[in-house]
Design a protein around this nucleic acid. Structure first.
Lengths: 137, 137
DNA sequence: TTCTACATTATAATAGTTCTAAACTGTTGA
DNA sequence: TCAACAGTTTAGAACTATTATAATGTAGAA
């Protein structure tokens, strides 16, 4: 678990000013061993639960986007409606529970190697993501 | 290539009334050997290019959703902003060109078998989709 | 043809996200 | 230390994609 001064260093070293809003969001997102998935809405709720200071919605968006750009968060493509983010930035895959509308990590090691036997000329592969949709058995 | 009376049969047999708007949209979506990807916006533009009758936006949404529900279209999860649909409803995967914001089919046969070595208790796998993000080499 | 249920339409409403411009605050350097 | 600047936050407006609404229209059955 990191403490605030670690977050300050982390932010500063990535060229982001360590403001109290950003530090607070760091605490919520990264102050745990577990990684998790969230929407902006989830994050806003979590902020209002854990602090009395309100952080404006625009700041939450700005911060999440800044963190995504710096590689501290990953965005996960799920059927439209809203953006899901993942604090686990390592390469891995996902289950998506269509009944519970819930995302669950799949460790990279739990997915056999994915072979792509075709290429697009002039393009290089950036990532290969597997989304496994599940439903009640 | 199908003609209108085929579309009328197709619609009727799936319990959708063959209205002229639906037939027009069928022509645009299915009147070609090739399958393709589109957003609602793309489709609206294509409609206004190929006909003088205007089809209201609400009808386009309704029709696309009806077709999706009937299995004539697939929705593809790509980073948020808007929904992508695919006239290719067979099982297959996608390249997503991050520079051109373009989707390209990958034939199922061009992706080696994907092994998922973990399960969620009480859930069964509905689909396994691979999204390969590419960028300029 | 006439009736009825389903479709279409324009428009309003909603939800998620981004923009804007003013106020605020970390940081730098005198 | 403190002023000044550049980056940040903020509230609210604006924007975009999508869905809901309620009136009008139309396909198909009798």
């Amino acid at each position: 678990m990191l403490n605030n001064s670690n977050y300050i260093d982390k932010l500063r070293s990535s060229g982001l000013r360590p403001t109290k809003q950003r530090i607070k969001i760091c605490e919520i997102l990264f102050d745990t061993d577990k990684t998790f998935h969230f929407t902006i809405n989830d994050l806003v709720k979590k902020i209002s639960k854990t602090t009395n200071d309100k952080i404006s919605l625009a700041t939450v968006y700005n911060t999440v986007h800044a963190f995504k750009k710096k590689g501290y968060l990953k965005e996960i493509p799920i059927n439209s409606d809203q953006s899901y983010f993942d604090t686990n930035t390592s390469h891995h895959h996902h289950f998506y529970d269509e009944n519970q509308k819930d995302l669950i990590d799949i460790d990279d090691a739990d997915v056999g190697p994915v072979k792509i036997n075709t290429r697009i000329p002039g393009k290089k592969i950036k990532s290969v993501e597997v989304l496994v949709k599940v439903e009640d058995a």
